[in-house]
Design a protein around this nucleic acid. Sequence first.
DNA 1: GTCTATAAACAGATAGAC
DNA 2: GTCTATCTGTTTATAGAC
Lengths: 188, 188
Amino acid sequence: MAKPVSPRGLARERVLSAALALFVEHGVHGTSVGMIAERLGVSKAAVYYQFSSKEDIVQEVLRPVVENTSRVIKIAEALPTWEAQRAVVISGLVEMAVGHRQLTAVFHADPAIAQVGSPELRAATDRLRELLEGPDPDPTSRIAITLFFAGVGSVAADPQFADIDDDDLHRALLDLSNRILQPATNTV
Amino acid sequence: MAKPVSPRGLARERVLSAALALFVEHGVHGTSVGMIAERLGVSKAAVYYQFSSKEDIVQEVLRPVVENTSRVIKIAEALPTWEAQRAVVISGLVEMAVGHRQLTAVFHADPAIAQVGSPELRAATDRLRELLEGPDPDPTSRIAITLFFAGVGSVAADPQFADIDDDDLHRALLDLSNRILQPATNTV
DNA sequence: GTCTATAAACAGATAGAC
DNA sequence: GTCTATCTGTTTATAGAC
């Protein structure tokens, strides 16, 4: 990462960055390839040179979330108890939200993702929910989990919190996770 | 009888209902007037006979939220203390979410709303936030409020909770509001 | 009230020049 | 690597027949 780029290089990254910003603002469906090109000051064809399709762009924008989610699942599944698994999943979710603020919101809230997203992506998020819910969850905790999921994404992307630094945001979200996602027990 | 409708009458309501369902599924940008017509088994022109534009449809779909929000604001503003105001706003939000489940989600999550929405709509939601935040809110409670806002909408629209009846959902969300929106420790 | 037909704009995507 | 130009399909919206 953070490779010093050649003067004209890394056009791909610039496209992905512009695309993400527009996805946050207008949603995936509300963002055209032309809008991405315009924001970069290049032509549509220049964007299509870097990516084979709009869906390709969406997939690549989403890649960090998919990879991170898979990683968290793997780590969690290696743990013996549900409580430990849940703690890892919560921590992973919050870290992802803080580390990829805009991305998290697009991922959680945009209806387009459900359709564009690969099966692996849907499988990963389903698994994440399962791990959070634990065995035989009651409706109340399923509601709490859904609320937390969406809420974390929304907070992460909200521009009004852009100036809050990562550590503070991380702390606030973890604190909220404790308040929201607790039946009775308290560890961690 | 308020309005004895013709056999297939109330075409407007049918359009709005179909539109809302599609907005939930595909987002506003992802829903075309043609899709709405197709779902109703009529032509696009038939839809345009009822509504002057797609934006018009969106506005009308959103109207119950706008009106309900304004009503809640008026009630809250008539109260003397911030605590009382906050309780009314929370209660109003939850009631709206439960009573208009799908609508609430479109309203809170769809990026298209921010652009399509009238100024009065944005003003109303901003005022609602102000009332929830109270005077001089710290970042932590602003984060909690944002999370609650988005989370309630997300829960309301989630099909997995469709079979939970209104009372139970209402209770669960109010309970969560208590857990989330606590003034941390420094009170009164 | 609903239809077919159509206009105008816009979206995704490709070809070929430089 | 980026451009202009273009093709194709879709979308919003309107006109006019029934």
